[in-house]
Write a protein that binds this DNA or RNA. Structure first.
Length: 198
DNA sequence: ACCGGGATGTTCT
DNA sequence: GAACATCCCGGTG
């Protein structure tokens, strides 16, 4: 199947526009690949739920850089989560990848995620997919939009859903009222469906 | 199925 | 010292 790489200009926009358009695109890594089925937008200085809300810190500096790079952060003392940086240098914004439908590298994913009892548990959460694909702190700042990036997003012809599911983001204490989570209706790899929609 | 609590350590107040 | 863009396990129904 024809795979077209998502260009940097795609990411150089408002994360609220980028997020739903990432649905059904494919995240490619050296370890495996998966179709993006759930995302959340984080709107930088306008968003109390964003790590960038209070300005840059050593941890969040990548989010203030150019678009098309990975912002990978460590949380709860054991988990990594991965975002794609949006907008442009000095104007932070990001899209958190929350779930993938595994496509390739299933054996490696199973080996990396011994707690997963079924394949749908391999990548159905932001930290799970990082564990499955081996994404960690060393990947913070990785360019995923360069001509030879080993990690990148491709469009394989499956279009984003015309009417994605949409609702409040998960796990936040601030900015929870903003409906900036999108996911593919009916996909079994979505982390949670039992939450408000609109 | 649903719910509650513990794990585990970096980041920022 | 508290918060944390989470996950896993063991309880109950």
């Amino acid at each position: 199947m024809n795979e077209r790489m998502v260009a940097r200009s795609f990411y150089a926009r408002d994360p609220l526009l980028v997020a739903p358009e990432l649905l059904n695109k494919v995240l490619l890594t050296p370890r495996g690949a998966g179709r993006i089925v759930e995302v959340e937008a984080y709107d930088g200085p306008n968003d109390p739920g964003s790590h960038a809300f209070r300005g840059p810190t050593p941890r969040t500096r990548v989010m203030f850089g150019p678009p098309g790079h990975l912002y990978v952060y460590f949380t709860y003392g054991m988990h990594w989560c991965a975002n794609i940086v949006c907008r442009t240098e000095g104007e932070p914004g990001a899209v958190l990848i929350r779930a993938l439908a595994p496509l390739r590298g299933l054996e490696a994913m199973r080996a990396a995620r011994t707690a997963a009892r079924r394949d749908r548990d391999l990548c159905n959460g932001p930290a799970k997919l990082c564990q499955a694909l081996g994404i960690a702190g060393t990947d913070d700042g990785t360019d995923i939009a360069g001509p030879h990036s080993p990690m990148r997003v491709v469009d394989d012809g499956v279009r984003p859903p015309a009417e994605p599911m949409n609702g409040e983001r998960i796990g936040l204490s601030r900015g929870i009222e903003l409906p900036w989570r999108w996911y593919v209706a009916g996909d079994p790899n979505v982390s949670r469906t039992n939450v408000p929609r609109r």
